[in-house]
Nucleic acid binder design. Structure first.
Lengths: 225, 225
DNA sequence: ATAGCCGGGTGGTGA
DNA sequence: TCACCACCCGGCTAT
C-alpha cells in the first residue's frame, strides 16, 4: 500500500495553483489530461468550479451535460464550488436557478457538493479526502463514543453500549439484571434473553460477536499467498 | 397526488420563522413534533443547523450521533447549514476538523449538504425541494444504499476500545493474542498482562471495571418498586 | 473531526 | 533487584 496519498490532476488545473498546494501538503500529484473531471482520487471524481464557472456553465446549459458524463465514468462524484457565495448569488438575477441546479445535482445526479472560499480551502479538502481514500476506506468503528472522563457507571454503560443492538436503555437493564459487566458477558444466550429482557435474536447477535474469531486486517497479505 | 407541496415541520422550528416563509410561498406546512430532523418531505428528511449550531454540535460530538439516527429513519438525508461560514471558519484554528466533518457526513453518511446564508434562502431551497418531491420527480432513488453497519472487525475493536486505557493499538493486540472478545474478557489478570502485552496496571484496571458492581443512578431511586 | 499536549504505563538499562 | 529513563499510547482539551 502506498504511503502517500495520490491524486490525479487534470493538466488544465495547473493555473489554479492547487496542484502545487497539494504537493506542499505531501500529496503525490500526478498530472494528466483528463477527459472528464478535474481531480481523481480512487473511485471518486472531483469537478472544481469557481463561482463564475458554475453560473456560466449553468446558464450555458453545459453543466448538466458535464454532470451526466461524469456520472457515467466513475463511482462517486464531487463538485467543489469555489468562491464567495454571497457574491455569486448577487450576480444572479434569479437565485432560484442556482438552488434548483444544486438540488438537481445533489438529488438527481447524486453529486456531493462542497463549497470553499478559495484555492487553499479546496486544496485542504482534496488532501483530506486523499488521505481518507488512501486508507482503503477503512472506516473507524464510528459508533463508539468513549464515555470520556467517566464515573465508573459511565464506563460500564459505555462498554455494553458498544455492543450491537445495545443502546443506553438495554445497557442499563442488563447491568441491573446481572450486576456487573463480566456477568453479562458470561451469561448464556438464554440467560441474556430471559433475565436481561432482550429478545433472543439480540442475545444471539451479541454472543456471536463475542465469540467471533478475529481476522486481522488484510493489510499484511503481501506475498503470503 | 396533492396539488400543493407539503412539508412536515418540527414544532421547534417555529422560532426560525421558516415555516411562515414556507406558507407564504404556497407550501402546505404541517406542524408536528419530530423525533428526528427538522423537516420532512416525503422520503427525505432535512436537518437545518445554523453555523454555530453546526460547529458546536461538532465539538460536542453529538453531530454524528444525530446523523446516524437520521440515517436509519429515512431514505434520503439533507443537511442545510445556514449562516456565513466565512466568518465562522475564520474563528477556527483547525479548519481541518470542519472539512473532515463535512466529508464524513457527505461520504460516509450519505448526506446532501447545502449552505444558505439566511432563513429566506433556506425557505427557498425547501420550497423548491417540496415542489420537486410533489411532482414525483423523486425520480430514481439512484442511490444504492449499502448496509451501513460496520464490519465485524470494527465492532470487535470497538468493544475493546470502549474499555479504559484501551485504544486502537491495544485492542488490536488483545484480539490478536486471544482470538475473540470473549477470550479477552475471560482471561485472568496475569494472562491479560502477559499474553496481551499490556502491563499489569492496565490489566488490573480493566478487570476492576469488568467486575465492578453496578450501582444504579440515585436519581431514579423510585420507591415505586 | 483533528491536532496537540499531558500524564501515566511499560519495558529496558545499568547500577 | 531496584531505580531510572525513554518511548509509546490513550485520554483530554481546544478549536
Amino acid at each position: 500500500m502506498s504511503l502517500v496519498s495520490r491524486i490525479v490532476v487534470d493538466t488544465r488545473e495547473k493555473a489554479s495553483g492547487i496542484p502545487e498546494l497539494l504537493e506542499r501538503r505531501g500529496v503525490y500529484v500526478q498530472r494528466k489530461a483528463l477527459d472528464v473531471g478535474d481531480y481523481i482520487l480512487g473511485q471518486c471524481v472531483v469537478e472544481r468550479k469557481t463561482g463564475q464557472d458554475f453560473i456560466s456553465s449553468l446558464y450555458g446549459g453545459r453543466l448538466f451535460e458535464q454532470a451526466q458524463r461524469i456520472t457515467q465514468s466513475y463511482k462517486q462524484f464531487m463538485l467543489i464550488v469555489e468562491g464567495d457565495m454571497q457574491e455569486i448569488l448577487s450576480d444572479m438575477k434569479n437565485p432560484k436557478a442556482y438552488w434548483g441546479a444544486l438540488l438537481t445535482l445533489a438529488l438527481r445526479f447524486d453529486f456531493r457538493l462542497f463549497f470553499t472560499l478559495n484555492q487553499t480551502q479546496t486544496a485542504d479538502v482534496l488532501s483530506l479526502l486523499a488521505t481518507r481514500t488512501k486508507q482503503g476506506e477503512a472506516s473507524r468503528p464510528l459508533l463508539v463514543r468513549k464515555p470520556r472522563m467517566g464515573t465508573e457507571r459511565d464506563w460500564q454503560l459505555g462498554v455494553l453500549e458498544s455492543l450491537p443492538t445495545v443502546g443506553p436503555k438495554f445497557a442499563e437493564r442488563l447491568l441491573r439484571a446481572f450486576g456487573s459487566i463480566r456477568n453479562v458477558l458470561l451469561a448464556s444466550r438464554m440467560e441474556l434473553a430471559v433475565r436481561g429482557g432482550i429478545g433472543e435474536a439480540r442475545a444471539r447477535k451479541i454472543q456471536e460477536l463475542l465469540d467471533a474469531e478475529y481476522r486481522r486486517p488484510t493489510t499484511k497479505q503481501t506475498k503470503l499467498a
